Simulated assay, not measured.
Amino acid sequence: MKNLSIIISALLLLFSATVQSQERPGEQLPPETNELFKLGVAGYTFVKFDLDKTLETLQKADVHYLCIKDFHLPFTSTDKEIADFHAKLKAKNIKGYAVGPIYMKTEEEIDRAFDYAKRVGVKLIVGVPTYELLPYVDKKVKEYDFNYAIHLHGPDIELFPDAENVWKSVKDLDPRIGMCLDIGHDTRNGKDPVADLKKYHTRVFDIHIKDVTGDTKLGYSVEIGRGIIDIPAFVKMLRKVKYTGVCSLEHEKNMDNPFMGIAESIGYFRGVIAATK
């Protein structure tokens, strides 16, 4: 019955948003407006699509935050290209709130990432350094006054498999170094993302929302609401810890044609928000 109420809430929200946007375009606020957290999309979701298609999809879904990937805004972009990029987002009422994930295997690549983020005009980097480079990340965070969110990878690679691993790696470093809590990868490494959000929320600077079919490496990505993650409990925990960042959908199923999955996932997540108030 709980899932049914969430689905009904999601459908009503989507229908209402569609009708209202047709009647009074640009005037409606997304359903999560009254929450401390915001809803966004991770740029990697659109790895096979250009920026125009990305922004069109976000606009149709009434999502206003995008984590910027370098395939949409290359590291070598000029100041004019960066300004044009932001102007294009602003025209769609979308904000690029962070850059990444960016993989960094050398000090030079860390320098490039911090310079890139500064030129783009954001103060959050979603990054993947090596463990050995963490002291240098600490130095750059102090220099730039940025937040640095290490992306989790679950059991797929050895680097930073879950929230506990990131916490242990950064707890003695500058408090501006934390994590991008990918709830799917955390789950696939046998962890509980609800419990991990509660434990480590002071170092959670970004969140990738998704759902998965299992709590091992064999688990794979599905639309939010179709997997094993307790999304209602996670939303309640977001409120409990007063998370103020972005929950960005990173949709990794059927990436050649992800659009129905994106709509379903965002609709379900918003249904959960409404049903758990």
Rank of each mutant, 00 (worst) to 15 (best):
T276P: 03
I110D: 01
I273Y: 11
P25S: 04
Q22E: 15
H208N: 03
I6M: 09
D50R: 04
A83D: 00
I262T: 10
I94W: 05
P232N: 04
D196E: 10
L4A: 13
G184S: 03
F71E: 03
K69L: 05
V204S: 06
K2D: 08
F37H: 08
I110S: 00
G121D: 05
D211G: 11
Q22Y: 15
G227H: 04
D256V: 13
D211H: 14
I177A: 04
R119H: 03
G219F: 09
K48Y: 10
N165Q: 02
P129N: 03
G26N: 05
R24E: 09
G245Y: 02
K90S: 12
G267F: 10
Y97G: 04
G121V: 08
D84R: 02
A61I: 02
A233V: 02
P155I: 06
D192P: 09
K105D: 13
A275G: 06
A263H: 03
G100E: 00
V222L: 07
S16N: 08
D70H: 12
G178E: 06
V235T: 02
E132R: 12
A149K: 07
R203L: 04
D62T: 09
I7Q: 07
A91H: 08
K69S: 06
M104P: 04
A274K: 15
Y220Q: 11
G271H: 09
V128I: 12
D162N: 14
V63D: 07
Y268E: 00
K277E: 10
A61E: 06
G190F: 15
T106R: 00
Y103T: 14
R270Y: 02
V222M: 05
N189Y: 15
D215L: 13
T276I: 03
D70K: 10
A42Y: 03
K217R: 15
D196Q: 09
